[in-house]
């Protein structure tokens, strides 16, 4: 399965959102990959996700393969849409 997500939180995909994303994706059996420009990384690898250095406004391609792919895609999209719970604080 393939989809696209846009980074909405101001600070981009820094350490904390990256950690939340990896914690979420690690719960699934499916293989989950994120791609920005030419760089494709394993979404279950914190260093991989951080290496994307995805800033606010960037678009990422998400590709998921496996038995629970549908749920995985849903979870990933929701995380990005919720801005990782960041901007509404304070």
């Amino acid at each position: 399965m393939r989809t696209e997500v846009v980074i909405l939180n101001k600070l981009g995909l820094h350490a904390r959102p990256a950690a939340l994303l990896v914690q979420a994706t690690s719960k699934f059996k499916s293989e989950i990959y994120l791609k920005k420009n030419d760089m494709e990384v394993n979404a279950k690898s914190i260093l991989g996700v951080m290496m994307l250095a995805a800033e606010c406004g960037a678009t990422l391609a998400v590709s998921v393969a496996g038995e629970d792919a549908e749920d995985a895609v849903k979870t990933v999209v929701e995380l990005f849409e919720s801005k990782f719970g960041e901007d509404q604080e304070e």
Binding site: R16, A19, V22, Q23, S45, I46, L47, G48
Partner: peptide, 19 residues
């Protein structure tokens, strides 16, 4: 709470599949 999440990142680095 927020600082604690940064420590979560440490744990995720230990377990990083790619590494």
């Amino acid at each position: 709470k927020e600082s604690a999440a940064i420590f979560d990142a440490h744990l995720l680095m230990i377990d990083d599949v790619t590494v």
